[in-house]
Design a protein around this nucleic acid. Sequence first.
DNA 1: GAGCCAATAGTCAGGGTTGACTAATCAGAG
DNA 2: CTCTGATTAGTCAACCCTGACTATTGGCTC
Lengths: 205, 205
Amino acid sequence: MTEKKAKKRKVSNLLALAVLSYLVQGPRHPYELSRMLRENDDGRSIKFTHGSLYMVVQQLAKAGFVAEQETTREGGRPERTVYALTDAGRKEQRDWLRELVEEPQHEYPRFVAALSLIGALHPDEAVGLLRRRLERLDEQGAEVRAMIDGTVSAGVHPLFLVEEEYRLALLAADRAFTERFITQITDPEDGWAPAWARFHERQDP
Amino acid sequence: MTEKKAKKRKVSNLLALAVLSYLVQGPRHPYELSRMLRENDDGRSIKFTHGSLYMVVQQLAKAGFVAEQETTREGGRPERTVYALTDAGRKEQRDWLRELVEEPQHEYPRFVAALSLIGALHPDEAVGLLRRRLERLDEQGAEVRAMIDGTVSAGVHPLFLVEEEYRLALLAADRAFTERFITQITDPEDGWAPAWARFHERQDP
DNA sequence: GAGCCAATAGTCAGGGTTGACTAATCAGAG
DNA sequence: CTCTGATTAGTCAACCCTGACTATTGGCTC
């Protein structure tokens, strides 16, 4: 117990990491950050809504990672408060990003939860649903692929789309797994379907 | 706009789906559910803490998916309130589980966020971090593999570990992607490192 | 037979997140 | 010139979640 356990971050929302990362390039006001996020990412990699951005900036300010710099006003528009990174904020940004890259985190994808409960369905129904899943996975894969190709051929360096390539890799793995799972259930030699069906009858009257 | 958009579930926490699924087999009190979850899943597939379980049961009761059945007392222990599924709850359980199996959801894995911001690091540092990631992925994969093999050889049907097989498939895909990414950066012919480094200098003074 | 830890059973304050709301300005249609 | 809808900019209440806390019983050791 002498080792300090990775003490949790003061602001854990990943949107905060994005804010810190954008502020590395200079002070910004929240609305500007919101616009940059919409243009660069549009909620594909980092979940955010308009309102959550303001919350997160407040939290970062309270934690001392950013500081209010000035309050400007243009025309009759509401005031805009410009925030800048503090030294602590710069440190937090580097540290956090490094941690996320080098340390695979335990996640809770929804399909994992579904699989852990799938015994509650009848095997025949499960197979039907899994087949439909394959179709959806193909559709989603095609969409992502098209998006990447379109953006790259518009002159953007692939580095800025590497997160979409990763997503594609996960979709492909999901597809392969789902296909394998279907086979394991339906295999006429030693498929799981009969045992599963018997188990299912005992559960469900 | 005549089509109704998939109206969001009244209780969206996945722990609630687990509770509904366990209650299919008969009425239970919260502590019993808590124990079952710890034994069957131990937080690997469905995130839960002791406290969140009680919250979720309350929410399910308010939404009409479960109903208080009786309050028993044994010895000097606190009262235990037993909950049972309602018809609406049974319907919600089936509907929700089906949806999760057939419809791949858009998720926000932490590594996706990290990749979308990785340009903020110097390419040399990124490569170092990605190499360490490979090691961690191997470790985690080996752990999951050992867990599966141990449990199966203790007589448990592999169906009850299918979510761990899925996790393993994702880990393998992550590994393959990470290796490919490192190569793309470091390739001496046309690697991204030089362009990345130039971009990085313009960002960071 | 006193002391201590693990298990049983549940509550609750504080903080985080969501989505709806306000309100002004500007560009373009008619 | 007026109306409409999009964009700019931000607030807020309601809900949700986490982690810490209370309190009793049973089993084990010394």
